[in-house]
Design a protein around this nucleic acid. Structure first.
Lengths: 174, 174
DNA sequence: TATAAATTACCTATCGGTAGGTAGGTAGTG
DNA sequence: CACTACCTACCTACCGATAGGTAATTTATA
């Protein structure tokens, strides 16, 4: 893993625990074993780092999902696949969704970071609308926003109350 | 309004836009017309201020809700009342729920602040469970977590995408 | 030998917090 | 009433730490 990748990984961990202001160049640098000034070689400003972080997070997230119609074709319910990705972020990583946290503090973010966070949700809503459509949902747009809202909210409350059973209860069908 | 009240009000605005680290004693002080050192007279530490802020926010929120059975008795659907309180926080204040934002960054909060945020959600879940119960819901505990998750999530996404129609769509029944 | 990557050595600004002081008011006591 | 003691609500001045960022230089690599 290159230093640049290591910096992004370290930043992701920090941001997912405490938001955009929860990481500093000094901390990241010492974690990956370089000096803080050297971080500026890879990312001119903090906003550049934050924007690239959100961008790559979005890409990885979408890549991990696959395509709704292909999932359906292989016998899977795409909405369950989506839910499972959120669940593993919460249970395995024990952290918030990066863009969920950044989205909440949207108003105080640098423009280029906020733009990437918006892209995350626009792409997610499009994916979910397609997924609900292949499920035969009569109102896929509305279901999409309800699905992502429920998951982001349930994640946040489970983290706050430090108990993943809230997430399980929120995502249970009956 | 006393200086102390003014400080809390100023802090609430900042935190609801960008989280716990989005306010400083110096900013609050200059907004209310005192010196930053004087803020320590009212709140010994930043954590004390944050905790009192979350405590009062929770109390005001619960007070604004009233009692589920009394609402029902006066012909109102308590869940609609609850949803409306979230809606006005988003539409009128144009800001996130204080404890929604703080909850997302729970892991990086001082203990006494995190504790108050947990209280917010525990009290809200209790209120919602009672509300769903008087509505004849067969699974009031599950409905409670689903309701608050959906609302917090919808709020966050509407703020991120800067479009309140997402909140409306998410909270629409059909 | 060119380029990429990281270094040293700074800068300015701001952070939360502390020390010590003061003007003005209140409460208790002889 | 006069005096003492204390309190409230601020102030100025400063602390060490940390923030993001910059310029010039060195080291490593292809």
């Amino acid at each position: 893993m290159s230093k640049k990748e290591a910096l992004l990984k370290a930043a992701e961990n920090k941001v997912r625990l405490g938001g955009y202001s929860n990481f500093s160049f000094r901390e990241l640098a010492s974690e990956v074993g370089i000096k803080s000034a050297s971080v500026h070689y890879h990312f001119p400003t903090k906003a550049d780092l934050g924007a690239e972080l959100a961008h790559q997070y979005t890409n990885s997230f979408l890549a991990a999902l696959g395509e709704p119609n292909e999932l359906k074709a292989s016998g899977k319910n795409p909405i369950n696949v989506y839910t499972q990705l959120f669940r593993s972020a919460l249970v395995t990583d024990r952290k918030m969704c990066l863009c969920g946290l950044l989205g909440a503090e949207s108003d105080s973010l640098p423009d280029k970071v906020r733009l990437e966070v918006k892209r995350f949700f626009n792409e997610n809503l499009a994916w979910l609308a397609a997924a609900h459509l292949v499920n035969g949902d009569l109102n896929p747009t509305q279901s999409a926003i309800q699905t992502v809202s429920l998951l982001e909210g349930a994640m946040m409350i489970s983290k706050t109350l430090d108990d993943n059973s809230y997430f399980e209860l929120a995502t249970q069908l009956t």
